[in-house]
């Protein structure tokens, strides 16, 4: 059986907000290591990779690997019924037809349980290689969100080029062009999460669909910083670390040059 108790139930809401625009169903894999999800959007252009490590739960029991296929839209509806301060327990049997969500209010004066039907999902599992990224950019997640939103107001595709001087985001649309360059902050005055850091072994440049990048920024409430990893001619990875718990990562296939 599987049983996991999460003290910060609001975290589940944030995780679901970060995926609900991209996928409608997915297999949550329960394993002794933690709860994970890998799923592609319907066009197979982007991939979501979530890990919530067992150590991050207040109580975690998983005897064997259990795939928990869930409709994300319905899951969002159910988790919305939890208060953001509630303690959430997720429970299911080894071959589950149903999964139970137990919500306990912080003051322990209200207990709710919801049972949701599982579904069988045949999804393609991708082997994402352990990559050494040619360029890694760490920046405030709110700044990345703002930047993607601004770029999307002008164009559909953003070209991201990273040099040691900084990261340049460029787009072109019917009304004109936009370029935003973010430079690594030189001074040590900022808090770590307010800094932009660039590490490169060689300059990288590629184009990506802003529609997807904007969806990824729905993960902003999960982390004060976001990390972009790029390798020439390979998908970009956009990672939001969840403190003491794991991550939400997105992979996005590049645009092809004409």
């Amino acid at each position: 059986m599987f049983e996991a108790r999460l003290l910060q139930g609001g975290l589940l809401k944030k995780v679901l907000d970060s995926i609900k625009d991209i996928i409608t169903e997915g297999n949550f894999d329960c394993s002794p290591n933690g709860l994970s999800l890998q799923a592609m959007d319907s066009s197979h252009v982007s991939l979501i990779d979530i890990l919530l490590e067992s150590e991050g739960f207040e109580h975690y029991r998983c005897d064997r690997n259990i795939p928990m296929g869930l409709n994300i839209t319905n899951l969002v509806k159910m988790i919305k019924c939890a208060g953001s301060e509630d303690i959430v327990t997720i429970k299911c049997e080894d071959k589950p037809d149903n999964v139970t969500f137990l919500f306990e209010s912080k003051d322990n004066d209200k207990i709710s349980d919801f049972e949701m039907k599982t579904m069988t999902i045949d999804d393609e599992h991708l082997l994402v290689p352990d990559q050494t990224y040619t360029a890694v950019v760490k920046m405030p997640s709110a700044e990345f969100q703002r930047l993607c939103r601004d770029m999307a107001a002008i164009g559909d595709t953003v070209n991201i080029s990273v040099t040691k001087e900084g990261v340049r985001f460029s787009t072109t649309g019917d009304m004109g062009t936009a370029n935003i360059t973010v430079r690594p902050n030189p001074s040590g005055d900022q808090k770590e999460e307010e800094r932009t850091e660039v590490q490169i072994t060689e300059p990288v440049s590629a184009g990506f669909a802003l529609r997807y990048l904007n969806s990824f920024t729905k993960a902003t409430p999960l982390s004060p910083t976001v990390t972009l990893g790029m390798v020439p001619n390979l998908p970009i990875v956009v990672e939001y670390k969840i403190a003491d718990m794991g991550h939400v990562r997105y992979y996005l296939a590049p645009k092809i040059e004409d």
């Binding site: 592609m40 066009s43 197979h44 252009v45 982007s46 991939l47 393609e124 599992h125 991708l126 082997l127 994402v128 290689p129 164009g155 559909d156 595709t157 072109t172 184009g207 669909a209 390979l234 998908p235 992979y251 296939a253 590049p254 645009k255 092809i256 040059e257 004409d258």
Partner: peptide, 14 residues
């Protein structure tokens, strides 16, 4: 802007 590639072109399936 060019066409859109998909992840199957980069990552193997299991």
């Amino acid at each position: 802007s060019g066409g859109q590639s998909n992840l199957g072109q980069f990552f193997a399936t299991r």
